[in-house]
Simulated scan of single mutants.
Amino acid sequence: MLLNRFLGGGIVLRLANICSYGVMACSGSQCSYSADKVNYLTQENAVALDQDLFNEYKFSVDQLMELAGLSVATAVARVYPATTHKSALIICGPGNNGGDGLVAARHMTLFGYSVAVYYPKRTANTLYENLLWQCEKFGVNIINDLPQPEELKNEYKVLVDALFGFSFKPPVREALKPALDALIYSGLPVCSVDIPSGWHVEKGPDSENSLKPALLISLSAPKLCAKPEILKNVKHFLGGRFLPPGIVQKYNLTLPPYQAQDQVVEL
């Protein structure tokens, strides 16, 4: 999967009603954005946006992945803080979503969580090997055997879904079926990275048995499957605070502003 994911710093223009990261309504020192004006990326635009970040703006994969993982960890901590959800299991796939999950694991340990990672299909690449090494050095428990879905509640309070991104195409590989089943059937709150695993990037879930996340952390800009009429009863955060102004203008993005130094914003 390509890195379809990074939203940049929201500069709120206090003297106007339009902010380059959202449509603003301002009164005195208070500003809010019009949620119905937020727009959503197609898969084609998400891929093109990533290529612009790499080619025109010279960002590296690991640079962007670090920002994505920090955003994920921050959003999870906002909704499921370590004080109430101490033990977290992050389920990582072989692509860039999995890399985001490995970065998030490291940051979540610094936020006070007891973190485990299940990473059944590892990517033979120096970047991913280094991220996994860093997790181990930070005290993340790398598990090789995944408990049955109904047993996960005995060990964890929250799951992070970093399994599949928007490039996923069915069917699920046999080696990854237990991981997806754990996310679907555990009964624990699931926090999905960018796209709920198994969903179509534009149409959303394809059946009643699809994953039902409790939290979605969109990266860069929300994708079409995150529209309110599809993403029902789900907490939704946008993360990254990263896109250059030129990208925002090129793709005509209307996105909410971040507050102060926040790395995420709730939609």
Results as ranks from 00 to 15, higher is better:
Gln249Ser: 13
Glu208Ala: 13
Glu44His: 11
Glu151Ala: 14
His85Ile: 01
Pro147His: 09
Lys153Ser: 15
Arg5Asn: 06
Ser29Pro: 05
Leu253Asp: 04
Ser29Arg: 11
Lys250Pro: 00
Ser87Ile: 01
His107Glu: 11
Phe6Glu: 10
Cys92Gly: 05
Lys169Pro: 06
Ile195Asn: 03
Leu64Ile: 10
Gly99Cys: 06
Pro81Gln: 01
Val47Ala: 14
Ala179Ile: 05
Lys169Gln: 14
Asn39Trp: 03
His236Ser: 06
Leu13Ala: 13
Lys232Glu: 07
Ala221Asn: 02
Cys26Val: 14
Met65Pro: 02
Leu102Lys: 01
Leu215Ile: 08
Tyr80Arg: 11
Leu110Glu: 11
Lys37Gly: 06
Ala105Thr: 01
Thr84Gly: 13
Pro94Ile: 02
Ala179Leu: 08
Ala214Glu: 10
Leu70Trp: 03
Met108Gln: 04
Ala260Met: 14
Pro228Phe: 09
Leu70Asn: 00
Asp100Ile: 04
Gly165Lys: 00
Gly22Ile: 04
Cys135Gly: 07
Gln134Phe: 12
Val38Ile: 13
Ala182Gly: 04
Tyr258Met: 11
Gly239Leu: 03
Ala124Asp: 15
Pro196Ser: 11
Leu211Ile: 09
Tyr57Ser: 00
Gly204Ser: 09
Asp36Lys: 13
Ile18Trp: 04
Met1Pro: 05
Val190Arg: 06
Arg173Ala: 13
Asp194Met: 06
Met65Cys: 09
Asp145Asn: 11
Arg122Gly: 02
His85Phe: 05
Ala46Tyr: 03
Leu267Glu: 10
Glu56Met: 13
Tyr258Gln: 09
Thr126Asp: 10
Ile90Tyr: 07
Val201His: 08
Lys58Pro: 01
Lys223Asn: 06
Leu267Asn: 08
Leu243Thr: 14
Thr42Trp: 00
Cys191Phe: 06
Tyr40Asn: 07
Leu243Tyr: 09
